[in-house]
Design a protein around this nucleic acid. Structure first.
Lengths: 210, 210, 210, 210
DNA sequence: TATGAATGAGCCTTCATTCAT
DNA sequence: AATGAATGAAGGCTCATTCAT
């Protein structure tokens, strides 16, 4: 039902101390419950009460490990962010030919896979990004990381774009948003098809027709 | 300070009755105040109290015209949505040459202009779209309208894309998201530059190099 | 739909001044509307807004003739009370024979007729009698009047009861409450049958078997 | 000051979970406070705030155990209703002689005792019975129970009444209403005297003179 | 005389957080 | 380490009453 990203990390209250096995199990239960609740109710509608109920634990216990709801989500977002950031680097060299497009496609497809896996957490940071800047920054950092990697690859690829940074942002935007559309059901296309469309468009946007 | 979209529309409670001049002025004051408050606090953090204070009116008055915050935002979103939808149709024929790109650029720039003008309302519907499906639908409808127009133009342009619908979605996604990035300050680029980058990328993605 | 009792009497604000034809019409409209609304919503749930809507007039107008909701209901209750009080006196001499029971039956049946006619107003005073003592007193006065008349007739009838006053109260209680049960549908019996049962029980209670 | 009927029962929110000692004490405090507040202010005028103040607890706590004022009163009424219903059955065989009247008197006196004990709750259900049909039904059920038992006893007593059901209703009406009059001070008579008057009248109404 | 608009006190309910055991 | 209970600030909504035209 729920796939907590790393579940290895508790929030502020638990920061300093070493958790014994039982404590770690409780933290994981809470994080998993958080993922479930975020998925069903969304960030703003999620109540601590929902989470502790889903985790079959108590309010008191929740605050033993997290200082508040935000803290739990932050832990979640942090983990997801790191996982995704780690992935950004896997993008290889970009070339104008089919091999380049294939590489791009692989990268995009992987991004999509992660997006689907962590959709509820990612949507939370999108939802929260306006009022709570911290999450926004976290999200921005992740996307910024993607854009940075892509900027580098574009710059070294000799693609005939005016400004590699701008081009990268545009491509990241299209990838992110299409995955979002798909995740909320605003468009209906299977992962492969989506990756195809995105890779083709992105490759064309960077290199033009072969 | 605030630019209410059309400000002609009250919510459910005022639906049946005809408003006199004074009532209409009050509705407009409330809508304008709503825009301001959404801009500063965001949808979720906005309280009815903030809005009536900004409108220099009373709680009771608010509920005379809107059944709650959601109702007011709905009126706002509706107007913005209609304004934007009306704009979608202005896209002319797309061609592989510079004229085609110019046309696309104009359309994109206009979209950006509206996006900037109504940013607070649009962000609200993005923010609200997860828990309140109605707003999501409204947003989806608007974007769907853009995608539909674009699909049509792509289909009749003879662009060498595999699926006009998919291509249109990708392009709309990139346009929307980049404007969003710009509006929340996640990227820093002036409107012209943004429109340029988007138009170039979109045109390339559709037609490849000239 | 509504049968306002006398509709001749406005509330406090209109007390001193003479109403012209139009004003009188408005008062009547409001009183009639009051009866309707009390019938459908009950005293506590009735809002001034309901009444003015039913009367097709405005809030401002309402307060031109009544100082508040209570005032309107008071006028209604007063009229009903007077009408009923006037009726109490019509009870003739009570005798142990069939003629006496017939007379009692007539009186009870007439009471029932009025009860049915003014049910919504009467229910209002029952409903209001706990918190607003004034209405309670009004209701008590009416019932007190009935009891007084009955006490007198019992005393002069030579009925073998220990205390005429107590007996009268018991009989009034049974008459009132049964009509109430019937009016709210708690018992289902037609007026004639109800009057029969009550007259028989009351006559027996006063005089025993013939 | 307050005599909560059974005080064993919480409202909807506490339905599922088992309450510990402290929670049970709190529920009882709230129910007792409810009884007090109903007695002093009546159902409609009672505010949740009054109840929590009287119970020396907080708003939040109230909603931990009851979903609203109605819910608390429902619990109260339910208990009173059950207590009274249980009592209805204690009525023994009715006979035309003095023993029969004595039995009736005992039953009536017991009813009066309970009425006095639970007066505030009973008045609440009378007060509330018009708008909230549920309470009305509860009250009707209780009275219906009394009437049913009485109907049975009348039917098996060979009393010369035309319709046992009608006669029972009439008697229940007189008992209920006289107790009500006494409880709101509309008549002034001590319990014994009241029971005497009622028993005599009821017995006569059923069996006529000895 | 009539009316639509405005007001704001009053009450209700939720939920994040703390506390005692 | 865990838990059930308690708290109260925050915000929502209604409706009787007043006001300006």
């Amino acid at each position: 039902m729920s796939t907590s990203p790393a579940a290895s990390r508790a929030g502020a209250p638990a920061e300093g101390r070493a958790l014994r096995a039982r404590g770690q199990r409780t933290v994981r239960k809470l994080l998993d419950a958080g993922v479930d609740v975020l998925a069903t109710r969304g960030y703003h509608a999620a109540r601590v009460d929902d989470i502790v109920k889903a985790a079959k634990t108590s309010h008191g216990t929740f605050y033993l490990y997290f200082s508040n709801k935000e803290d739990l989500v932050r832990a979640l977002v942090r983990d997801v962010g790191e996982t995704m950031a780690a992935h950004a680097d896997t993008l290889g060299a970009l070339t104008p030919d089919d091999a380049g497009r294939e590489e791009l496609r692989r990268w995009i497809a992987d991004f999509g896979g992660m997006y689907r896996k962590y959709a509820s957490v990612i949507r939370s940071w999108v939802e929260a990004e306006i009022d709570t800047h911290e999450f926004g920054h976290l999200g921005a950092d992740v996307l910024g990381g993607f854009a940075a990697v892509l900027t580098d690859r574009i710059a070294t690829s000799g693609a005939p774009v005016e400004d590699a940074g701008n081009a990268a942002v545009v491509v990241v935007a299209m990838i992110e948003r299409c995955n979002y559309y798909a995740s909320v059901g605003q468009i209906r296309s299977d992962p492969d098809e989506l990756a195809d469309s995105l890779a083709r468009a992105a490759h064309l946007a960077l290199f033009g027709a072969a």
